[in-house]
Simulated scan of single mutants.
Amino acid sequence: MKIADDIHNYYENLVSQHFTKLKIDEKYDDDFIADLTCVVLNQLPTRYIRHEVDMAFYLPASERFEMESNVREAVDKALQFMKLHQAQ
């Protein structure tokens, strides 16, 4: 087993989905997005999984909603932070 190949943080997927929804890739370059991703993920707890299907079957809807809300808030804060510090 290779940890890097078999295990990942479920929040990475949620952040990626939210970026797609906001069309982040159309608004910012790759370097900005990489930094933004780090700032966002550092605000969120980790939720390690092996298989996406595990989350689909075992995650209660209320917890999924809370996780998505946490992602939205973290992205908003990170965008404000990045824009403020971009020119510096």
Rank of each mutant, 00 (worst) to 15 (best):
M1A: 05
M1V: 07
M1D: 08
K2N: 03
K2E: 11
A4R: 12
D5I: 07
D6I: 11
D6T: 11
I7T: 08
I7R: 05
H8P: 00
N9K: 00
N9P: 01
Y10Q: 09
Y10N: 03
Y11G: 00
N13K: 15
N13I: 03
N13V: 00
N13H: 11
L14T: 01
V15N: 01
V15L: 02
S16L: 12
S16D: 13
S16E: 15
Q17V: 04
Q17K: 02
H18R: 12
H18G: 00
F19E: 09
K21I: 08
L22Y: 01
D25V: 13
D25T: 11
E26A: 13
E26R: 10
K27Y: 05
K27T: 09
Y28D: 01
D29K: 07
D30E: 14
D30Q: 14
D30K: 15
F32Y: 15
F32R: 06
F32S: 05
I33R: 05
I33C: 07
A34V: 03
D35K: 01
L36E: 00
T37M: 10
T37P: 02
V39A: 06
V40A: 04
V40I: 05
V40F: 00
L41G: 04
L41W: 03
L41H: 05
L41D: 04
N42I: 07
N42V: 07
N42F: 08
N42W: 08
Q43D: 06
Q43W: 02
L44T: 08
P45R: 03
P45L: 08
T46L: 13
T46V: 12
T46A: 14
R47F: 03
R47E: 10
R50L: 13
R50W: 09
R50F: 12
H51C: 11
H51S: 12
H51M: 14
H51L: 14
E52D: 15
E52R: 12
E52N: 15
V53F: 13
M55L: 14
M55N: 04
A56M: 14
A56H: 09
A56K: 15
A56S: 11
F57G: 10
F57Y: 15
Y58W: 12
L59D: 05
L59A: 06
L59S: 13
P60Q: 15
P60I: 03
P60A: 11
A61M: 10
A61G: 07
S62V: 10
S62T: 10
E63Q: 10
R64T: 06
F65R: 14
M67E: 09
M67H: 08
M67G: 04
M67T: 02
E68F: 06
S69N: 14
N70I: 04
N70V: 04
N70R: 08
V71Y: 03
V71M: 13
V71K: 09
R72P: 01
R72Q: 14
A74W: 04
V75C: 08
V75R: 02
V75S: 06
D76C: 08
K77L: 13
K77H: 07
Q80P: 00
F81I: 05
F81M: 11
F81W: 05
F81G: 03
M82R: 12
M82Q: 11
M82V: 06
K83V: 00
K83E: 12
L84C: 07
H85A: 10
Q86Y: 12
A87V: 08
Q88T: 11
